[in-house]
């Protein structure tokens, strides 16, 4: 079977980035940048907790009421503030992970994100999540695509050879 099918490399990948945890964001950024290096048309749809990393680093708190502001302090904006989902230990786990990565020359996710943008990866913020969490477009990093919804994301996935939910 494998012999008679054309060994064609995939040309489109869509990742749904729903998590704001460092341990999920890192592989997401590795796969999307590598996809772009493969010449794939890559789209990453950032939704729910996955939206927080797209908020610019200098924005400390997002939200438009007490509840959304509270959520924002529990999920601090920006890649650099992303925590580990397990054994974060008040930031010590995250710190160790980043130290270790530095020692092994593993590029941090915020740098991979910048490379993704340079390589033409489309980054789509989820409009519904922005509304839900009171995150404004002007609080997001530059270079992103237009905010989109679930239907747009699904449509993109249906046209992709690779679909991931991370």
């Amino acid at each position: 079977m494998a012999e008679d099918t054309e060994d064609k490399s995939p040309d489109k990948m869509t990742i749904i980035a729903f998590s704001g945890d460092l341990d999920k964001l890192w592989p997401t950024m590795i796969l999307s940048s590598t996809g772009a290096a493969y010449g794939m048309d890559v789209t990453v749809f950032h939704t729910f907790w996955g939206l927080f990393p797209l908020v610019r680093d200098e924005v400390k708190i997002t939200g438009d009421n007490a509840m959304t502001k509270m959520l924002s302090t529990m999920n601090p904006p920006g890649f650099r503030r992303a925590k580990l989902s397990k054994l974060n230990m008040g930031g010590a786990g995250k710190w160790m992970m980043r130290q270790l990565a530095g020692q092994h020359n593993v590029v941090p996710p915020e740098e991979l994100f910048d490379m993704c943008l340079q390589m033409g990866v489309k980054i789509w913020p989820c409009q519904m999540t922005m509304d839900l969490l009171g995150i404004r477009a002007d609080q997001l990093r530059p270079g992103l695509g237009e905010p989109a919804g679930a239907a747009t994301a699904l449509s993109e996935m249906s046209r992709s050879d690779i679909q991931l939910f991370i």
């Binding site: 590795i30 940048s33 290096a37 010449g39 020359n105 593993v106 490379m115």
Partner: peptide, 10 residues
């Protein structure tokens, strides 16, 4: 480290 060699090659 991974994925930099591939990214730089590209």
């Amino acid at each position: 480290s991974c994925p930099m060699p591939v990214l730089l090659a590209k």
